[in-house]
Nucleic acid binder design. Structure first.
Length: 336
DNA sequence: CAAACGTGGAT
DNA sequence: TATCCAAGTTT
């Protein structure tokens, strides 16, 4: 049954696989740099969101040596808006290890890849299989969903992971593990979707225990999620001579390493309330109010030209607050 | 092992 | 509007 299911999947993939910028054409060799970069960007991030970033990154930094030589601040700026910013810091760190310790070539074993910054169990297996043709058991959210349905695994996550791994291992071929993994992920992304899966056109339907039970959407069984708390905060828009004061956030923690508006008062000034921005993070919702002021003296700090604020590489929360700052500025100019 | 860590699109 | 969720990793 496993072999039949695998063959059905691979035949479907041969015809219906997605064409993606980081994917090699049939018969072509995948570029480990592009595979790695795409895998990092795709962590918890949709293909549609990744595409323009992948295009810009590979244009600006065509290979791992170029990325290793880049200024970290430039990389953070290019990553702005994509989220999970620790990935960008780890991206640079990883490129530098590969350039410095591995002669500019990615290691081709799962174990060696796993030691690199930002590469965990999934990504190490994916790169080993897709870029280097190694046999590796590749398990992401798609594979978890497809396998838990295929075998109607009723154990809730995360306890089900041991069985999912064993089942995926049994399905994974000795040759072509990369195509198999990508086929599973394409199936999960386009047919075996979380909601309203398209079982009518699924190549695995004849083999799928969840389909035969009649309610595939029930799998994988997930634990209830914790409620998302709401928090409040204040950001400060301080102007001087056509420039606005920015800060570099600490390397770790929320929006770590990114440029931002100050979130503590940077100066004595006549602050004006310029409204608020609601922003939802994974683990809490935030209402951040914006206080604006103009000063004649110029405190020490990073002053960014206001007309080029769009190029600063602010994460989305602060980009939205900056929009408010610009609106405040317009209103102040009208009044004057 | 649970919690921290972003964002935008779909329902 | 509220909730879910997308090619996870780190602490």
């Amino acid at each position: 049954m496993s072999v039949d299911a695998r063959q059905s999947l691979l035949c479907w993939y041969a015809v219906d696989k997605r064409r993606l910028p980081w994917r090699a054409e049939a018969g072509e060799r995948a570029d480990p740099y592009r595979v790695w970069l795409s895998e990092i960007m795709l962590q918890q991030t949709t293909v549609a969101a990744v595409k323009p970033y992948f295009e810009r990154f590979t244009t600006k930094w065509p290979d791992v040596g170029a990325l290793a030589a880049a200024d970290e601040a430039d990389v953070m700026r290019e990553w702005a808006g994509l989220g999970y910013y620790a990935r960008a810091r780890n991206l640079v760190a990883c490129a530098r290890v590969v350039a410095g310790d591995h002669g500019g070539r990615f290691p081709d074993s799962e174990a060696a890849l796993l030691k690199l910054p930002g590469i965990g169990r999934y990504t190490a297996a994916a790169i080993a299989a897709i870029a280097f043709g190694r046999r590796a058991v590749v398990i992401d959210g798609n594979v978890e969903r497809v396998v838990s349905r295929l075998y109607a695994i009723a154990t809730p996550l995360p306890a089900a992971r041991a069985e999912i791994r064993a089942r995926t291992d049994a399905l994974t071929p000795d040759e072509g593990a990369g195509d198999f993994a990508q086929a599973m992920m394409d199936l999960g992304a386009t047919i075996c979707t979380p909601r309203r899966p398209a079982c009518a056109i699924c190549p695995l339907r004849p083999h799928c225990a969840a389909f035969h039970e009649g309610d595939p959407e029930r799998y994988p069984v997930k634990p209830p999620k914790a409620a998302r708390p709401r928090r409040t905060g204040t950001a400060f828009w301080l102007e001087h001579d056509g420039h606005v004061l920015l800060v570099r956030r600490p390397a770790s923690g929320l929006l770590g390493g990114m440029l931002a508006l100050p979130t503590e008062s940077p100066a004595q000034a006549k602050w004006t309330d310029a409204g608020a921005v609601d922003h939802v993070f994974t683990h809490f919702a935030l209402t951040m109010t914006l206080s604006c002021a103009r000063v004649d003296a110029r405190p020490e700090g990073l002053w960014w030209p206001i007309e080029r604020i769009g190029e600063a590489g602010l994460p989305t929360l602060f980009a939205r607050l900056a929009e408010r700052g610009l609106a405040w500025r317009e209103a102040a100019a009208q009044a004057a």
